[in-house]
Each structure stands twice: as structure tokens, then as C-alpha cells.
């Protein structure tokens, strides 16, 4: 008899992926009174397991092993599939990060389970998961449901669901599990990892400052970066700025870049093409700074400043610094 909800909690070098807690919070809601189990794979991940309990897990399955130190598809998929077969949870959730999408899709394929990817709303209708997903470049919403029997899989778009606050009084059980694949059975080897240092990842950021064609060149991103830094936010960009070679692709927000949902999105010198909107329209508050009062971005924005971003951005940076003391 299948029961309870299993959440794959992602971590990188012992640091939990914040969006995993959002999935854990949703698991608590969907489980009703049933058990919520977290699964943590990595090396040296004891503190992640403990935090999973404080965030709502009743039990944490921990696979702590050198073969799991870096994310790789084969060992992670094989282990999650084995855990699902053994524990038969009713529902399996994860954050819809790159690894989360891969691991759940791979395990669902192995088990023959239905999977709903990158959902922004999730409910149970007659015991089956029903989800809302933005499709067609974020222009419409699709309502989809699991129809098959057995464990039901879903990945949750980061920042679409609230994260539960840690509760230090919660207790739970930590259970060690062994990896499925030995190193010599894994075809891929991680040779290097060039970490993003000193910057906040777009997916996690609560504040994003983005620049577009209006910044005019690579040095035009300096005032964008300074404001982002003053606000403790991340730097984004439109496709036009990336295609012009002014800033690397990993900063691109939009249909062919990243989809983000920060609390605050400041678009500077971005006209707001539909493809850009697809990446940022779920931001809580959008601010548009543009010389052209007719720019489509103003239709989406909550606040607008019509003006030169090279005057407005430094003024905002100065104001933020002044208020922070």
C-alpha cells in the first residue's frame, strides 16, 4: 500500500538547494497526516538531513558516499528509483532545478510513473496529482493530471511555493542508505567544477536587476551590477544584450534563458519582448526603467521610471546605500 510523500532534497557541497524546502513544504500539505520522507544524496550531507527534519521531514534517507559527491545522472537516478520501489510513496517531489528535473524524469521512466514537470500549482483531486504549468513560453497555463497508478511524480518551479521556516523543536529519524552503483559502473566522471563565485544565482535570487539593449555595451552592465550588489541581488540580462556579447549567456532571462520568480525584478533598458516576459512575468514586483515611455515593459511593470538608466541606476544605488547606512 503506497503512502506518504517522498521529497528529493538537492544539495551542492553540503549546502541545501533552497527550492527543495519549498517542495518539502508542499509535501507536508499533500501528505495530510501521512509521513513525509526526504532523500538526500551526497558526501558530508548530515547537516542537510538535519535541516530537512526541521523543515518538515519525518524521516530522512541519507546516502552519503564518494560516488554521490557530485551530481551525476546515472547514480542519482538509479538510487532514487530504488528508494521509490522499496518505499512505494504515493507522491515523489523535487524542485524543478536542472538536477531535479533530470533525476525525477529518469526515475519516473525506470518505474513507469507519470511526471508533471516545473509546476506552479499542485493539488490532489480524487487521489491524483493535478498541476498547473506555464507553457508556450509562459503565455498560457496548462492544467495537467496524473492518470496512471503507482507513485506520482512532480517537480516544482523554484519560488512558486512558500518555503516552510525551520522548526528547531521538530524531531525525526535519519536512516542511512547505500548507493546502487559502484564507481566503476558509472560511465561519467566529473573532471572539474568552475563554481559561480561571488554572485547570487538567478534561480535563487529574491532580487534581480537586469539590463538590456539600452545598456549599450559590456561596460553598460557596470551600473546594473552595482545596483544588484547594493541590493544583494543577482544580475540578469535580455537576449539582445547576451546576443550582442555584452554579458555571458548564464545571465539571460527569458524564453531561451532562465525563468525566474524573484520578489523584485528591475528591468533597465529592456523593452520587454514577449520572449523576455516569459522569463520574468511571475516576479512579485516589476520595476521598469526605460527612456522610451512606450516600451512594452511598462505594461507589465508595477512601477516605472522614464529616464536614462545611466542616471537612474546610480541614483538608486546611492539611495539604497544611504538607507542601509
Amino acid at each position: 500500500m503506497s503512502q506518504g510523500v517522498l521529497v528529493w532534497v538537492e544539495q551542492f557541497k553540503g549546502k541545501p538547494q533552497a527550492a527543495s524546502w519549498e517542495a518539502l513544504g508542499q509535501a507536508r500539505t499533500l501528505a495530510g497526516g501521512g509521513p513525509v520522507t526526504a532523500a538526500v544524496f551526497g558526501q558530508g550531507v548530515e547537516t542537510v538531513a538535519q535541516e530537512a527534519i526541521r523543515r518538515g521531514a519525518d524521516r530522512v534517507l541519507v546516502a552519503d558516499d564518494a560516488t554521490l559527491a557530485d551530481y551525476r545522472f546515472e547514480p542519482f537516478v538509479a538510487l532514487l528509483a530504488q528508494i521509490v520501489r522499496e518505499h512505494q510513496p504515493a507522491i515523489v517531489l523535487a524542485a524543478a532545478t536542472i538536477a531535479g528535473r533530470e533525476v525525477l524524469a529518469g526515475a519516473a521512466a525506470e518505474i513507469g510513473a507519470g511526471l508533471l514537470t516545473d509546476v506552479t500549482d499542485l493539488s490532489l483531486e480524487g487521489g491524483k496529482l493535478q498541476a498547473v504549468r506555464p507553457v508556450l513560453g509562459g503565455k498560457v497555463l496548462s492544467v495537467e493530471a496524473i492518470t496512471g497508478d503507482g507513485p506520482q511524480f512532480a517537480t516544482l518551479r523554484p519560488r512558486a511555493f512558500p518555503a516552510p521556516e525551520p522548526d528547531p523543536s521538530r524531531s525525526g529519524e535519519i536512516v542511512a542508505v547505500a548507493p546502487v552503483l559502484a564507481e566503476d559502473a558509472i560511465a561519467s566522471k566529473v573532471e572539474a567544477m568552475q563554481e559561480v563565485t561571488g554572485t547570487i544565482s538567478l534561480t535563487d535570487a529574491t532580487i534581480i536587476v537586469s539590463g538590456g539593449r539600452g545598456v549599450g555595451g559590456p561596460e553598460g552592465f557596470d551600473p546594473v551590477r552595482e545596483l544588484a550588489e547594493a541590493l544583494g541581488g543577482a544580475v540578469g540580462a535580455s537576449r539582445a544584450a547576451v546576443d550582442a556579447g555584452w554579458i555571458p549567456y548564464e545571465h539571460q532571462v527569458g524564453q531561451t534563458g532562465k525563468v525566474v520568480s524573484p520578489d523584485l525584478y528591475i528591468a533597465a533598458g529592456i523593452s520587454g519582448a514577449i520572449q523576455h516576459q516569459a522569463g520574468m512575468r511571475t516576479a512579485k514586483v516589476i520595476v521598469a526603467i526605460n527612456k522610451d515611455p512606450e516600451a512594452p515593459i511598462f505594461k507589465l511593470a508595477r512601477y516605472g521610471i522614464v529616464g536614462d538608466l545611466f542616471e537612474v541606476l546610480p541614483a538608486l544605488t546611492a539611495e539604497v546605500r544611504k538607507r542601509l547606512g
Binding site: 513507469g112 510513473a113 507519470g114 511526471l115 508533471l116 493535478q130 498547473v132 506555464p134 507553457v135 509562459g138 503565455k139 498560457v140 497555463l141 496548462s142 492544467v143 495537467e144 493530471a145 496524473i146 492518470t147 496512471g148 512575468r281 507589465l300 508595477r302
Partner: peptide, 16 residues
């Protein structure tokens, strides 16, 4: 080839 999921309907985005 049996589907395990089903697309039910589409909805407009909520207006900002």
C-alpha cells in the same frame, strides 16, 4: 505507450 498523465485544459494567465 499508455499515458500516465493527461492534459486537461488551458487557462489564460492571471492578469497582473
Amino acid at each position: 505507450l499508455q499515458p500516465r498523465t493527461q492534459q486537461l485544459r488551458y487557462q489564460e494567465l492571471p492578469k497582473r
